[in-house]
Design a protein around this nucleic acid. Structure first.
Lengths: 158, 158
DNA sequence: CCATTTCTTGACGTTAACGTAAGGGTTGTG
DNA sequence: CACAACCCTTACGTTAACGTCAAGAAATGG
């Protein structure tokens, strides 16, 4: 047992995870995470002294969403980046909001955040609607088939 | 005006269309259609004497669905082929059903068709559900922001 | 301090899904 | 039949999204 039972390497410091761990958690490879970073899908990621990447729980969460978007929407990374950038703007707004003393500015930022989220939702809704339309097509075909089945079998059991 | 106003070339015979027309109709290129055919996403397509491809309205419809699936699900062509193959099986079932004299066999085929369609719907439902979950996440964040907005703005103007 | 493991940055390889160009037939029209 | 517009196949080029390999540093347990 070189390192089987104890995954103690997993805790470089508090909650922070290294790239390998994150990758495994997401079912991806370290290479993919570096590639995504290179392409600007996530902020350059913190490093520890020697240059090893460290991911916060928030980072991991963001990565999870990216992975989901990729799977669900089938967008290219470039397209996903625009979505993620909006997301990032949200994070920035949050941080600024906390530091912000003026209630008026806070309000403005929050309203902007709502606008961004609303836009993201619209994108999703669009996709959902199209998929439901497709689904409806399939259902219609099923109904027609069911009618035929009922005609031929509904009367008697034979 | 060499051929602007009159797209008479569009009708080689009745309803059949040539590759260029179909491509334009779908917002794709001829190359893409040939590639799809090469990859088995559609049946080898009818040809006219000289070897020009001819597409029936049914073919076009099938192509429309393929294009939609690609856009919506982001599946690879290989994955889409499995979906399309199911679809094709349906078409075959339909044709056989008409030629089929035995009501029992007809029934069996139709039930099989329903099963196939149900499976396709399940795939779509799965995707839809995941997207709705994502959507719900965004909505929750909006609600939290709205609460904050109401707090700061609902009581007094300050 | 040493061994082992995990990380780092290149750099080149790979696959899918086409784009593009070459060379040459086919079709419909005048 | 001549001609433009379209189509055919073949083949090589391209881009995205990684995979893989190499050489070397950094972390950690003993």
């Amino acid at each position: 047992m070189s390192r089987a039972a104890e995954a103690e390497r997993a805790a470089p410091s508090g909650q922070l995870m290294q790239i390998g761990e994150v990758a495994e958690h997401l079912g991806l490879t370290p290479r993919t995470l570096r590639y995504w970073e290179e392409k600007g899908l996530l902020p350059p990621a913190e490093r520890m002294e020697g240059g090893f990447r460290l991911y916060s729980p928030a980072d991991v969460e963001r990565l999870e969403r990216i992975a989901q978007l990729k799977k669900l929407l089938g967008f290219s990374l470039a397209e996903i980046r625009t979505v993620v950038e909006a997301d990032e703007e949200l994070q920035a707004l949050k941080r600024q909001s906390r530091a912000e003393t003026s209630p008026a500015k806070q309000r403005a930022r929050r309203e902007r955040a709502v606008a961004i989220l609303t836009e993201q939702i619209a994108i999703l809704d669009n996709h959902i609607a199209q998929m439901q339309a497709l689904r409806e097509g399939y259902e219609a075909r099923i109904r027609r088939l069911r009618e035929l089945l009922d005609e031929s079998g509904g009367r008697a059991a034979e």
